[in-house]
Amino acid sequence: MDPLLTFIVILVGMYGLSTSKNIIKSVFSVTIMESGVILLFLNLGNTEGGSIPIVSRASEVIADPLPQALMITTIVIGSTVTALALMLCIKVFHHYGTVEWREILARGGGK
């Protein structure tokens, strides 16, 4: 497990976010970045030779439960935020007739 490989996932999401031409593509990229961030946190919280964070007689070393608890909330919040963004996207399509960033900005959508 390497945090560097996880960071590449975040960078791919960033690349997608900055090159995406359409709103749905941007939302996809945000989802990817979110997964990368979660993986990075869990990766850093994981200790070598540790077990899952449940107290038992066998476990001497455990993975850090704190980032895991934070990441559970991130997943639930992330899904609702994605849903909110997509709902806005539907509304934007029915108002501007398109979901391409360029055309929306050309019609004064970025004011």
């Binding site: 979660i38 869990l42 919280g45 990441m71 997943i75």
Partner: peptide, 26 residues
């Protein structure tokens, strides 16, 4: 694999059913 089964359960439940559904609809 990162020793976080709690997070995995949440991800499977949300990421494989609800997220694709809302993407399909939108």
């Amino acid at each position: 694999i990162n020793k976080a089964p709690d997070v995995a359960i949440a991800e499977v439940a949300i990421g494989s059913a609800i997220i694709p559904l809302i993407y399909v609809i939108s």
